[in-house]
Amino acid sequence: MSRDRTSRRLPVIITLLVGLMLTIMPLPASAEPFRPNWLALLLIFWAMQLPRTWSVGSAWMVGIVLDVSYGTLLGQHALALAVIVFATVRFHLLMRVFPLLQLGATIFALLALYQFILFWINGVAGVSAPSINYWAPVITGTIVWPFLYIFLSGVRYRARSGA
């Protein structure tokens, strides 16, 4: 049983690690503001597909790691990720049967909520307000979502048949 569980979790953990690398990988300054929130997208996908294994707890832990590597307030990204993953898990059955356009709109809303929570905490903590570019990851995140979805579905079924 435990070996089965490990083999089930390993692909997800690997995608999360790759996501973390993409998050802290340097980009040219002009492309910088448009970097999608990879970890948020990954967590939404896995919470949609495997909500009993990847839920708010794992999202929170990923958030703490993100807080440490960003040097933001400890708990800021953790809170935001936990909230959007909560929404995802709550509606995961609906989201699975959504047509592509509607799912895209949902992802857009979730990413906007994520950025908004971070923005709001920054405001309360007195971190200076960023420029309009701050909201760019919401749009780029929505654009990369379909490709990420196809890729991750592939990962998921391959992992299942391999196990």
Binding site: L73, L74, L79
Partner: peptide, 17 residues
């Protein structure tokens, strides 16, 4: 227990912050 879990995590986050 999902709602409860997320509430607890939010509270922990706020205390941490």
């Amino acid at each position: 227990g999902l709602g409860l879990r997320v509430l607890v995590l939010i509270l922990i986050s706020i205390v941490l912050m």
